[in-house]
Design a protein around this nucleic acid. Structure first.
Length: 468
RNA sequence: GGGCUCGUGGUGUAGCGGCCUAACAUGGAGCCCUGUCAAGGCUCAGAUCGCGGGUUCGAAUCCCGUCGAGCCCGCCA
């Protein structure tokens, strides 16, 4: 690096990335054009670059389909020598192509590149384990995951992660507009935060440490600083789950806010956040939605986020399910997945909503910091949000009096000493507050209608998978 | 942690006691085809059927073990 900085030689600069984003080639700067922007360059000679997605050979000409980070472009090759050269390349070879952009109704997207010159930037040395040029990858999930570095290149797979990116962007935008401050809390923690869930243990210079299972305690502390905070980050759970909706590392969209009257204000913020997420996807991901819905022949339809998401009390939900199904659930401490699915269908049917708030879960089933419902002993101000029948969000109002925390920790047999920093915040005054956490992968999975969150996690970590 | 199911060429499947020296599709190799777009046609190569043991005249096919994977439940985002 130091030698290069001295700048004596320029000999390696036959192909260097220029500050402009283009390339310097033989001393001539030619901007590299995204495949999705070709329509704006008709009649011009341009340079594109990407991966050899597919070569279709016909007798007198061949079609070379190039994929870049955004889309696909068709290149028409008529020179027999060039076709012969291309035919020897494996799919996924990295190419740079210069040619003339031509409007052509027969071409996919209406434009294609003619009279190309092709430069191989990096050869693929083996064919891909499965076909990337087909409408969908034809491989079982474990096979796909084993080959994720290649499989994620498939236009449909990567569309899923553009939806995830837009979701995060919309989440950030909605909360920022509401005066929330984005924070980053530590993922290496000194105490097993919430007690219950299994945590991953680390060796931290000889002392025990853990991977954070949730930013919960830190985001509450930060309410004492900014009043309104949010965080987008990983959460780690050492639970030996093996289901399509669990992973041992996932992305949590966390929110916490102070000076609330009750949990309904928290639910209103969540309502706004979801609306922002859907709006961002609608704005940024139309091509992706079209691609993801293609198997049904129509673009994927985004859920409508109601101005006020329907709400039901936990006890009423049990009552209703009992009445409808004949199964007596009264007195149950929690909802089973089958009941959540039932409620999801009910919300769809009765309220035309993909979303349903269930609040008032029994205090005993919620975390220690959950605020009880003063009007209804045994029940809490904790809520879940069901999205299409799946638990997507957990949240609620939290305790905020120092004395309440000391009492509840003692009641649950938890050691106050391991909550030192947390309790200090309450010792020095915390407002009534609450918050929630959205599971990003679950959100995207339900949204794009894939059955397993492993498909909405880039490199999932589960019971048996630590690589790639 | 409990229950159920599955493991066949690179990939996805069929075959479920002898017709299997294992079939089909797709990918790969080769040839042909004036515009393809999951292109089309022909030819070739590619799996001792996860692994180990057993039953049987005979096992991909039945049994046991083992390893790997998937689903449901508990629990959760």
């Amino acid at each position: 690096m130091a030698a290069a900085k001295c700048g004596g030689t320029t000999s390696r600069a036959s192909l260097v990335r220029a500050a402009s984003g283009g390339f310097v080639v033989g001393g001539v700067i030619m901007e590299r054009v995204w495949t999705t922007q070709l329509g704006a360059h008709i009649g011009e000679r341009v340079r594109i670059a990407g991966w050899l997605h597919r070569l279709r050979q016909l007798s007198n000409l061949s079609f070379l389909v190039v994929r870049d980070g955004q889309g696909l472009a068709q290149v028409v090759v008529e020179d027999p020598a060039l076709i012969a050269r291309l035919a020897e390349l494996h799919a996924e070879t990295v190419l740079a192509i210069e040619g003339v952009v031509v409007a052509e109704p027969q071409a996919p997207g209406g434009v294609e590149i003619h009279q190309p010159t092709v430069e191989v930037l990096a050869a693929a040395v083996a064919p891909p384990p499965f076909d990337l040029f087909r409408p969908a990858i034809n491989a079982q999930l474990p096979t796909f995951l084993d080959h994720a570095p290649v499989g994620l290149r498939h236009p449909r797979q990567r569309a899923i992660f553009r939806v995830a990116a837009a979701s995060m962007a919309g989440f950030r935008a909605a909360l920022t507009a509401l005066q929330f401050v984005e924070i980053q809390t530590p993922k290496i923690v000194g105490a097993a935060t919430e007690g219950g869930a299994n945590v991953f243990r680390l060796d931290y210079f000889g002392q025990p440490a853990y991977l954070s299972q949730s930013p919960q305690l830190y985001k509450q502390i930060m309410v004492g600083v900014f009043e309104r905070v949010f965080e987008v980050g990983p959460a780690f759970r050492a639970e030996p789950h093996d289901t399509p909706r669990h992973a041992n590392e996932f992305v949590s969209l966390d929110v916490e806010l102070g000076f609330i009257r009750d949990h309904f204000e928290v639910m209103a913020v969540l309502n706004r956040a979801l609306a922002g997420m859907v709006a961002a996807i609608a704005e940024q991901c139309q091509p992706e939605l079209a691609l993801l819905g293609a198997r049904r022949g129509e673009a994927l339809v985004l859920p409508q986020v109601p101005a006020a998401i329907p709400t039901i009390h936990f006890a009423d939900a049990l009552e209703m399910i009992s009445r409808a199904t004949g199964e007596d659930l009264r007195g149950e401490p929690d909802l089973a997945p089958a009941h959540e699915r039932w409620l999801g269908e009910w919300a769809r049917r009765e309220h035309h909503s993909d979303f349903l708030f269930v609040w008032g879960y029994p205090t005993a089933k919620r975390a220690f910091y959950t605020h009880p419902d003063p009007a209804r002993p045994g029940y809490s101000r904790g809520f879940d949000l069901l999205f299409r029948g799946l638990e997507l969000v957990s949240g609620g109002q939290r305790l905020h009096h120092y004395s309440d925390y000391l009492a509840v920790l003692a009641e649950r047999g938890m050691n106050p000493a391991s909550f030192g920093g947390y309790l200090e915040a309450f010792k020095h005054g915390m407002p009534p507050h609450g918050g929630f956490a959205i599971g990003l992968e679950r959100w995207v999975a339900r949204l794009v209608e894939v059955p397993n969150i492993r498909e909405t996690t880039l490199f999932p970590r589960d019971l048996t998978r630590l690589t790639p």
